[in-house]
Amino acid sequence: MKRAGWYLIAGAAAGFAGVLGLHGAGAATPSSPGPLASGGAGAAPAPAATATGGTSRSGDPAAPSGGAAPARRATGAVVPYGYGELSVTVTVRGTQITAVSVPLLRTAEPYSQQIAEQVLPMLRSEVLAAHSAQIHAVSGATYTSAAYAQSIQSALDKLHVK
């Protein structure tokens, strides 16, 4: 068969472009694929509803609480990962991270939810110990860990910490 290779390559290019196009379309419309991303970022009915999407500062320089550096709080970006999406809220005092919570966690299916619930406390204690987003991923939850670290980093960026 003549030019068999060209037909293969043309097909491969079409398939590649097709998936990229579908992926792009899916990313552009937040309410597209499946159980994920049913709402916009931060608009989720999440527990501990501090997720306002922006920076919420409790504790002003004008009204210091406790005498030391003021506590400031920010919610990081909603980070989609392979099995769901999450966002992390960080409270800092100076350069010390004093509290971490997860206002938004949505997963595709129960198994991923279970994994995430297992590892979130571990990730939280790592962050509280390291005082940064530079944490070790938890074995068996690589994607969740990476998303957690990324959301924390974006929160710290909003607070201009480091």
């Binding site: 293969l8 097909g11 491969a12 290019a13 079409a14 398939g15 590649f16 998936v19 990229l20």
Partner: peptide, 21 residues
């Protein structure tokens, strides 16, 4: 058939690339 076989190949490659941020 050749185009279809190639399309599948392109599609799985693209899938692998898009699923990693």
């Amino acid at each position: 058939g050749l185009v279809l076989a190639g399309a599948g190949f392109g599609a799985v490659t693209a899938l692998a690339i898009t699923d990693e941020t």
